[in-house]
Write a protein that binds this DNA or RNA. Sequence first.
DNA 1: CAGATATACGTTATAGTATAACATAACACA
DNA 2: TGTGTTATGTTATACTATAACGTATATCTG
Lengths: 128, 128
Amino acid sequence: MGAALTPNETEVLALLRGANGPMTAYQLLGRMQRNGGAVAPPTVYRALKGLEEAGVVQRIETLRAWAVVTSPVPGVVAICDDCGAVRSVEAQGVFEGLHQRLAAEGFAEARQTIEVHGRCGDCTGGQT
Amino acid sequence: MGAALTPNETEVLALLRGANGPMTAYQLLGRMQRNGGAVAPPTVYRALKGLEEAGVVQRIETLRAWAVVTSPVPGVVAICDDCGAVRSVEAQGVFEGLHQRLAAEGFAEARQTIEVHGRCGDCTGGQT
DNA sequence: CAGATATACGTTATAGTATAACATAACACA
DNA sequence: TGTGTTATGTTATACTATAACGTATATCTG
Ligand SMILES: [Zn+2]
Ligand SMILES: [Zn+2]
Ligand SMILES: [Zn+2]
Ligand SMILES: [Zn+2]
């Protein structure tokens, strides 16, 4: 079974949930230090690793930052370069199509990272 | 027109072309130092930036490394976690499907990063 | 309870990645 | 010749991540 979260993991998750977007590991570190005194980088990286393995947090590769997983199924990460908003967009067909395409090449995929930069609806003048 | 490459860019590109896979910026730096004496990080990062803007080099985000662009059209980067091989696989339908999906959300995409980790055909016991 | 194992955590140091800021050189060309 | 532009050199620093080792705590076992 998926083990319960440790206290450090719980704290990091709460910080990420309270943020309105991804946070870098050192932003998390700073917050934890202001909360609880002496905290060092391994503490936050260990927590992030555990949360990632638990599937509740993911690294946004193109931002070198960390965010809560908002979708039960893996989504496309859409990042607005204007306002910084990050959304996970479900795109089952895209993932499946990619799976097929790679399988045709004999490639057995284990993990897909799909991140897209651009401008969100709000920032383009917004047709919603 | 796309400006000609500078000497530093040319050197970095030659190193990447001579490698059998992505290289980190500091691997490139080490090579350049062995070739030409005093070289500092900004030299290689500047060259990488120029090459990236020229479209001949790309950063592999999930590897924090740099590789030559092998496909005229953007491809899916397939990374074998076993042997380290990195291939760019054309998947026009995937990119287009993703484009459509995001457009439907009002998101105007500018840059897609699609990287997949797994095992290549050679490493799975290889049906080619 | 003594001892063994496992897990989480603390602590220090260091590795690895990337950029800021400012100085200099080289070139084009008015 | 002067002037702007591009490329480069140089120094320092910021940012991201992990290695290595020690300690605490819980749990099980005999
Ligand atoms: Zn936006
Ligand atoms: Zn799949
Ligand atoms: Zn392989
Ligand atoms: Zn598109």
